[in-house]
């Protein structure tokens, strides 16, 4: 039982970073209804910009985080312009394949400039653990969790208390009606992309900081963790993305402990597959999915 709870704690800590990635995914999907496969690789590029600042200018912590976020936002904007803005609205598949092509491109750009593949990254914290009764919490995980929670609250304020947040939600609910209100969809999409990339940049800094090293594979990893967490929670739902991220973290921690490392990803994908077959709307999206189905029946 102690093990199980310890795993849950670890899972929630790690899952908080998955939640950030999933929120980024869900923001973009919400306003565009298109999938950005290049999300992970673009924040990976940002993290390498951070690495560059760390290695070349010997700057630590905050400067690296800022550089990572800036790099991620620039890469995200590049993806948005090329794969989404430039491709007409109806061609969702073309956008997705295009974002995949840019994924390949970003990965190769990084390997050209960073041929060693594995590079050091400033660690988030000393490797110490805090003891609470029979449980241990790693300091770096605690920092990651606190940052993720703080960012989520900030995001909530942004979405529900500002004019931009109102516009963003209007566009994701009904782009046609949003245009009648005079909302410029292109501009909202652009800033949603930038926002998602910035969130992703922070997530990348936190995750890579706990590993203290980075490889170009992080792009693929981040895309899939974010995608799985988003689907588990329900596409387009922010509370869903948070729950999905935490659930994914806990399932990974439990399966690693009880079954072994080689079963960790298998368990995650199996969970995703079962969810898709039996509860395609995810944890939070069920209502929306039902409504969509009902609408289809009516026609």
């Amino acid at each position: 039982m102690v093990d199980f709870i310890q795993n849950c704690l670890d899972g929630v800590m790690v899952g908080s970073s998955y939640a950030l990635l999933a929120i980024g995914f869900t923001l973009i999907f919400g306003v565009m209804r298109r999938l950005n496969l290049s999300y992970g690789p673009s924040i990976m590029l940002g993290a390498f910009v951070g690495t560059l600042v760390y290695l070349e200018f010997q700057m630590g912590g905050f400067a690296v985080a800022v550089a990572t976020v800036i790099g991620a936002v620039l890469a995200g904007i590049y993806v948005e312009r090329l794969c989404f803005w430039a491709i007409r609205q109806g061609a969702a598949v073309a956008s997705m394949v295009s974002s995949f092509a840019i994924w390949m491109q970003l990965e190769e750009i990084v390997t050209v400039f960073f041929p060693e593949r594995t590079y050091p990254f400033p660690p988030l914290a000393d490797r110490t653990a805090i003891e609470i009764g029979p449980f241990f919490l790693k300091l770096e995980n605690l920092i990651m969790f606190a940052c993720a929670a703080g960012l989520t609250v900030l995001l909530q304020v942004l979405l529900y208390r500002t004019r931009f947040g109102l516009a963003l939600r209007a566009v994701s609910e009904n782009p046609r009606a949003a245009r009648f209100m005079g909302i410029n969809i292109g501009r909202v999409t652009f800033w949603a992309f930038a926002l998602a990339s910035a969130l992703g940049g922070v997530a990348a800094y936190l995750i890579i900081g706990t590993d203290a090293q980075i490889t170009p594979l992080f792009g693929l990893w981040a895309t899939f963790k974010g995608l799985i967490a988003m689907m588990l929670g329900g596409m387009g739902s922010i509370p869903g993305a948070i729950l999905g991220g935490l659930l994914l973290g806990v399932v990974e921690a439990q399966s690693t402990w009880y079954l072994g490392t080689e079963y960790r990803d298998l368990a995650a994908y199996a969970l995703l597959f079962l969810f898709l077959v039996f509860r395609p709307g995810g944890l939070m999206g069920q209502v929306a999915a039902e409504r969509e189905r009902a609408a289809l029946r009516r026609v």
Binding site: R163, L166, A167, R169, A170, N174, R176, A177, A178, M181
Partner: peptide, 22 residues
């Protein structure tokens, strides 16, 4: 607009606020 097109998952108040967006 035709078919009303309200924002279904926003509150009535938020819908009104969206109307004043411009």
């Amino acid at each position: 607009p035709e078919n009303r097109l309200v924002f279904p998952e926003m509150t009535v108040a938020e819908n009104l606020r969206a109307g004043a967006y411009s």
